[in-house]
Write a protein that binds this DNA or RNA. Structure first.
Length: 615
DNA sequence: ACTACCATGAAAATGCTC
DNA sequence: GAGCATTTTCATGGTAGT
């Protein structure tokens, strides 16, 4: 396997005695365990851990976890990733404890402890909270990293400020308490939130528990729903993180102006990521955070122009790997600005051949004849899920027919605006039209008729295509896998849609030994399945409808059966992030886009299962 | 100011079955 | 053509970058 970077944090370090712990504190006070976020163009991200830090150890112990568990969690996850360690700790504390086994946690409310810790994690995620840099720093704060020093003091004081805030909204903290309590009883946080919403903010704990119990019983009667305790924990944790982040953002909005803005991830200009085949670019290295280096490879995609802060959050949850922002206009004739977070090598990439046409003119030669000189477009805009209506093209035709030759400026402007907005092309005199589905397929790099037939409607074709990868772009990034997996690759494809990732790998000539594909829409699964059959694949294709079905248990089975995954790839829904959404652009916590947390849940789970297997 | 943007929901239009 | 299902059309801001 290629990225053989199993953590061996236990190499030269042992947690066996308190003395050692004390000693380590001194040693690592000045060490940096995290580094500054690099500027986009590939300055080294630095190692995420320069050595075992006892402060890390003490911090978790201080958060209420027992020393043995903390030692174990750090050993197994390395020090680089707070997420994994916390995840592991939460796992242990549920799985391994009958409560009396863990007096450290039990003596005070475990939920409160964990909640408080998660709160602090979140405030780290926020990075911004306050600019007070002259507060005293206690030993607890130094482990975060030297680079976060400016932000450290607030990590201490933030509990103060949080309480201050919560006092201003009494129901919030009351809700918080109920949440914590019920979560501690084992109910998923999200369900508790829903219960509070349904039963009202003044509902008693008994009422809420009744509601939750009824909900679980109703669900249990659904045979298809598997809800074993272990995976639920992962799911809970993701939801927990999500909720915490949401709260954090809410607080932040409330407190606008008090705290300075964090330094946001910025989009590169030109948007060529770590390079594209057609633009000159100096080669450079990047060094991934250590936790991101362990197998499997992962590849996450979403819209580049998400609301502010979303990419920062995504990046933090994906081991602080910096996104690679690429506009597909450097690969094909249509723009497609997307961010990709992955831990693939970036050296020796190569493009799919033949290179696709890169102008409208080349891609759609029949439009050349009718293209007016006053329409300067060379590239199409982003191919979206909806197309211009026939009525609109009719209005445009009528507007143009009133004039011989060039229309006046205001008509030109109207026509050009609409053409840009809806990606209309010239198909006759005074006649514009939206793209046909097969043209979209071609522009996105799919085989002709990929989405055609099999019961899918024209509307749904546009929808599925609009939500898909640009194959050439993704294939360029994935091309490095060809040499790494000459014998074939085992892929876990989440939210796989019409199978852009699979098509890309196939076109690259990477044999698909195994594809486990998760896709909710039946039409999309059918498209993938028929593509699979038509391309005479010899590997195994497993369809899974819902990410919820991909429980930890199921993942363990799959890993056991197939020997792990080489690549976890997917783009989570962008509905609530995309600029086109006028109704529910709610950010990452939106209904669909929050499925991002399922992605990291599954990625974390696979990492830990595979990591566990290796030892 | 100007541009672009993996959208949603309701109403209207169209298609399908009987 | 009635009744139902599906598809098409329209109206609907707001964010962030340039």
């Amino acid at each position: 396997m290629a990225g053989n970077l199993t953590d061996n944090g236990s190499d030269n370090f042992s947690w066996s005695s308190d003395d050692e712990v004390e000693k380590e504190k001194e040693v690592f006070d000045t060490g940096s365990s995290l580094t500054t976020l690099p500027s986009f163009n590939g300055t080294a991200e630095g190692s995420s851990s320069s050595g075992p830090s006892s402060t890390l150890f003490r911090h978790f112990v201080g958060a209420g976890f027992s020393e043995s568990l903390v030692a174990k969690a750090i050993k197994e996850n390395g020090e680089g990733n707070m997420e994994s360690i916390l995840n592991a700790l939460l796992t242990y504390s549920v799985l391994e404890s009958s409560p009396s086994d863990e007096p450290d946690i039990e003596k005070s409310s475990a939920a409160e402890q964990n909640g408080d810790f998660a709160e602090r994690i979140n405030d780290l995620f926020g990075q911004t909270n306050n600019g007070d840099s002259d507060q005293k720093i206690d030993a607890d704060s130094d482990f975060w990293s030297s680079d976060y020093d400016e932000n450290i003091p607030e990590e201490l004081s933030d509990s103060d400020s949080c309480f201050g805030m919560e006092e201003t909204s009494g129901t919030f903290s009351e809700k918080e308490q109920k949440l914590s309590f019920l979560a501690d009883m084992g109910y998923p946080k999200e369900e508790v939130s829903i219960a509070i919403e349904r039963c009202g903010p003044d509902s008693s704990l008994e009422e809420l528990a009744d509601f939750l119990c009824a909900a679980q019983m109703a669900r249990a009667s659904d045979a298809s729903y598997v809800d074993p305790p272990k995976p639920k924990l992962f799911s809970d944790y993701a939801k927990h993180k999500k909720r915490k982040m949401l709260e954090y953002e809410m607080r932040r909005k409330k407190q606008k102006g008090i705290f300075e803005e964090d330094e946001p991830i910025r989009l590169p200009k030109p948007m060529i990521g770590f390079g594209v085949p057609t633009e000159p670019q100096l080669p450079f290295h990047r060094t991934l955070p250590e936790t991101a280096q362990a197998p499997p490879y992962f590849y996450y995609e979403n819209v580049a122009l998400a609301p502010k802060g979303v990419w920062d959050t995504i990046s933090r949850f994906l081991y602080d790997v910096q996104p690679e922002f690429v506009d597909s206009k450097f690969f094909c004739a249509a723009a497609r600005k997307r961010g990709y977070i992955h831990n693939l090598p970036i050296e020796n990439r190569f493009p799919l051949l033949p290179l696709p046409p890169r102008t409208i003119n080349e891609a759609l030669p029949l439009t050349r004849k009718w293209w007016p000189s006053w329409d300067p477009r060379i590239k199409l805009n982003c191919l979206q899920t909806a197309i211009g209506s026939a009525k609109l093209t009719e209005r445009i035709r009528k507007a143009l027919e009133d004039y011989d030759g060039e229309p006046p400026d205001h008509v030109k402007k109207f026509v050009l605006d609409e053409c840009r907005k809806w990606n209309l092309v010239w198909v006759g005199r005074n006649k514009v039209a939206p793209l046909e589905p097969d043209e979209v397929e071609m522009l996105l790099g799919f085989p002709r008729n990929h989405t055609r037939g099999g019961g899918i409607s024209r509307t749904d074709r546009f929808k599925s295509l609009g939500n898909s990868f640009q194959v050439d772009t993704v294939a360029y990034h994935l091309s490095v896998l060809k040499d790494l997996f000459p014998g074939g690759i085992k892929v876990l494809s989440l939210f796989s849609g019409i199978g852009g990732a699979e098509v890309a790998l196939h076109r690259l000539g990477v044999p698909l030994k195994l594809v486990v594909s998760v896709e909710l829409a039946e039409v999309n699964r059918n498209i993938q399945r028929s593509w699979w059959e038509q391309t005479n694949q010899t590997g195994v294709l497993i369809d899974i409808v819902d990410v919820q079905q991909l429980t930890n248990e199921r993942l363990e089975q799959l890993v056991k059966r197939f020997g792990g995954f080489d690549l976890i790839i997917g783009g989570s829904p962008c509905n609530n992030l995309a600029g086109s959404n006028r109704v529910s652009r709610d950010g990452l916590e939106g209904k669909e886009s929050s499925l991002f947390f399922e992605y990291i849940r599954i990625l974390d789970a696979v990492k830990s299962i595979m990591g566990g297997k290796k030892r």
